[in-house]
């Protein structure tokens, strides 16, 4: 177990690359050196990168759950209103007139599933988070524009303050910076 980091401690090393190919090579090299918990930063979604890092989210299951909840709530609300709370007998027509409840049940299903997808994604990503140590690196502004970054962070099990920069340097990055805890 690592000790709790203090301000100014090393957060990790951040290497900058020009393209996906270089980034993928770097990821494979770091993996070969035993690093398991790396972070990559790309200006657009790149499947190969998160496949190489082994990221796989549980979001679809959450969204399914959200949709089912919405559907049950939607139908339940209409059933409760029409059958239990405020039944109106109109010429003996059935109170639970389920065909006319389909639309709102459907809309509520979609609404809840969509809200779960959006807020679930943000929550799992730990956003909003206005500041992160990597933002202190000047070159990192390019992460949202045209450059690709690889971070070997302090919480990686085989993080070593001397070996990691040497390894990253051997991959000939465009820049290499140490990131510090704020």
């Amino acid at each position: 177990m690592k000790r709790r980091p203090k301000s100014g401690d090393s957060f990790g090393f951040l290497a900058e690359f020009a393209g996906t190919e270089e980034l993928l090579e770097a990821i494979h090299a770091c993996k070969a050196a035993g690093h398991t918990r790396m972070e990559a930063y790309t200006p657009m979604p790149v499947h190969e990168v998160w496949d190489a890092l082994g990221h796989k989210s549980h979001l679809p299951k959450l969204v399914l759950g959200g949709g089912i909840t919405g559907g049950i709530l939607g139908f339940g609300m209409q059933y409760f209103a029409s059958v239990i709370h405020y039944p109106i007998n109109v010429g003996g027509r059935p109170l639970n007139s389920w065909p006319s409840f389909i639309i709102i049940t459907f809309e509520m299903t979609i609404l809840f599933a969509a809200l779960t997808a959006v807020f679930g994604m943000l929550l799992l990503n730990g956003l909003p988070r206005p500041h992160h140590p990597v933002f202190d690196v000047e070159e990192f502004e390019e992460a949202s524009q045209s450059r690709f970054f690889l971070l070997v962070p302090w919480y990686d099990p085989s993080f070593d303050h001397d070996k990691v920069p040497a390894l990253l340097e051997s991959l000939s990055p465009l820049s290499l910076n140490e990131v510090h805890h704020p």
Partner: peptide, 14 residues
């Protein structure tokens, strides 16, 4: 919202 383009974020994002 502090978006930093992390690969694990992109995966959930997509």
């Amino acid at each position: 919202l502090g978006w930093r383009g992390a690969a694990r974020h992109w995966e959930r994002y997509e």
